[in-house]
């Protein structure tokens, strides 16, 4: 009956903070571009309008990616690990649900960048021979436990490829 109901588990709540921080850091790029545009406008005297328009666009973009999207994204993200399969749901506008049979799992990784580390989170990546699937933010211990559990479950005899 799976794939009819969404998976049960949510990812760590701090994911929102981590994503917000990441998005804020990314928004440095539009800021730099705005500065560059104004400097260029000053030096080569072309219109300041380009810079102004760009400010408006990047403002909207920053508000969306920093304030709204992380929350929505977290809200949609669900996963569930069964004995024989892994079930993942994600996506804001387009909601995807993925089912990965345990016997297809080739390896599981946990990863932690500086931002995730700050919040004590790590991400978990499940790879099959043809696809990879990531659960983006789990509490460190939880991720490690899940990784071990999946790799244990995936150990069941692999019949070729």
């Amino acid at each position: 009956m799976y794939m009819r109901q969404p998976p049960s588990e949510r990812i760590a709540k701090d994911a929102i903070k981590a994503w917000k921080l990441t998005a804020s850091l990314w928004s440095c790029i539009p800021i730099l571009i705005v500065i560059a545009l104004f400097v260029l406008a000053y030096l080569f005297d072309f219109s300041y309008w380009y810079g102004t328009i760009f400010i408006a666009i990047s403002l909207i973009e920053v508000i969306l990616t920093v304030i709204f999207i992380p929350k929505l994204r977290w809200n949609r993200w669900r996963y569930e690990v069964f004995d024989q399969e892994i079930y993942i749901q994600h996506g804001i506008l387009i909601v995807s649900r993925t089912l990965v049979p345990m016997i297809r799992v080739q390896h599981v990784d946990t990863k932690q960048g500086p931002i995730l580390k700050k919040y004590g989170l790590s991400s978990l990546t499940v790879s099959t021979a043809a696809t990879t699937h990531e659960i983006p933010a789990l509490l460190e211990e939880e991720a490690a436990a899940l990784r071990d559990r999946i790799s244990e479950l995936a150990r069941v005899e692999q019949d070729d490829v």
């Binding site: 909601v95 995807s96 993925t98 016997i103």
Partner: peptide
């Protein structure tokens, strides 16, 4: 048993 993963996706109109 040869299918590596199955994914279904829907956007709001689909739903």
């Amino acid at each position: 048993k040869r299918i590596q993963a199955l994914e279904r996706s829907q956007h709001f109109l689909h739903r």
